[in-house]
Design a protein around this nucleic acid. Structure first.
Length: 275
DNA sequence: AACAAGACCTGCATGC
DNA sequence: TGCATGCAGGTCTTGT
């Protein structure tokens, strides 16, 4: 499910809703997701106060007092929902935080590709899952030149390169397809040939599509929800993603939007506008 | 070293 | 209706 815009949307809603609250009880409802929950997780966060909500790429970072942080990844199907402590526990809820105002934060993840870790704040930067991540796409320091440098010499496709979280962190299949369309770059182009003005256009398109998606609350195809349960609506603004055969919004190309498979994943594009 | 393929899971749409 | 198949927003590990 969640790419950067979905995680950022969730972060903002949690920040507005639960900042400053204390965790009165926590519970894990199974032993693992993609990896085991940390030992004694529930016990170690009981009584902690939620001090800050951060995001790094697709990771949500819940900063607690006592210099602790929850590191959460939502995988493909993860949601974070705010309810109340009296609620029945829904199917596929694996982790629960009960707060001092009677509300409950629940992590629901049917496919269990997500993960939760508990990390001392001082160890966050060196965490194995965060250490190797590339730059944040929305950072001012990510310029066309910086991206071109990260892609230099790479013979893999630009589509695959943008999905590689070590080169740029936070993009997934949807927003890579959309950004390549907006910048007129073929998904099949060798990554190393994206430089100069082309790289500048690509970076501008990446930033624009992410900002547009965040403003829309992310994209709800199946799983993504805001913590309130509301849907995102950026899916109504897709220009190419999941639109195979439909007319290209930018031209009258024959057959409309094309689909191909790269690295085992669908790519949607216009063969005429994207070169 | 870079890259592709397989693995991890459940749910849903499709076709027979 | 039931069953098999394939596909899905991610990423880690394995093999070439």
């Amino acid at each position: 499910m969640p790419e950067l815009p979905e995680v950022e949307t969730i972060r903002r809603h949690l920040e507005a809703g639960v900042l400053g609250r204390r965790i009165v009880a926590a519970r894990t409802l199974r032993g693992d997701l993609r990896r085991p929950f940390p030992p004694d997780l529930a016990k170690r966060i009981q009584g902690r106060r939620i001090e800050l909500l951060d995001r790094r790429a697709k990771y949500l970072i819940v900063r607690l007092d006592h210099e602790l942080a929850l590191l959460i990844h939502l995988g493909m199907s993860g949601r974070i929902l705010i309810g109340s402590t009296g609620d029945a526990i829904a199917k596929h809820v694996h982790f629960i935080l009960d707060l001092d105002d009677g509300r409950r934060i629940a992590l629901q993840d049917p496919r269990r590709f997500g993960l939760v870790d508990l990390v001392p704040t001082a160890a966050l930067d060196a965490h194995p899952l965060l250490r190797a991540l590339g730059p944040e796409p929305l950072a001012a320091t990510l310029t066309g030149a910086a991206l071109a440098n990260a892609l230099k010499g790479s013979k893999t496709s630009i589509k695959a390169a943008l999905l590689d979280q070590r080169r740029i962190a936070g993009l997934g299949n949807i927003y890579v397809c959309e950004a390549l369309f907006r910048s007129g770059i073929s998904p099949k182009r060798a990554a190393g040939t994206v430089s100069g003005d082309r790289a500048r256009k690509l970076v501008a398109a990446i930033k624009a599509v992410l900002k547009d998606a965040i403003a829309a609350g992310g994209s709800t195809l199946r799983d993504h929800r805001l913590p309130s349960g509301e849907l995102g609506y950026f899916q109504h603004h897709f220009q190419v993603y999941d639109r195979e055969g439909q007319p290209c919004p930018g031209c009258d190309c024959k057959g409309g939007i094309k689909r191909l498979v790269q690295g085992g994943r669908s790519t949607f594009y216009c063969a005429k506008r994207q070169r």
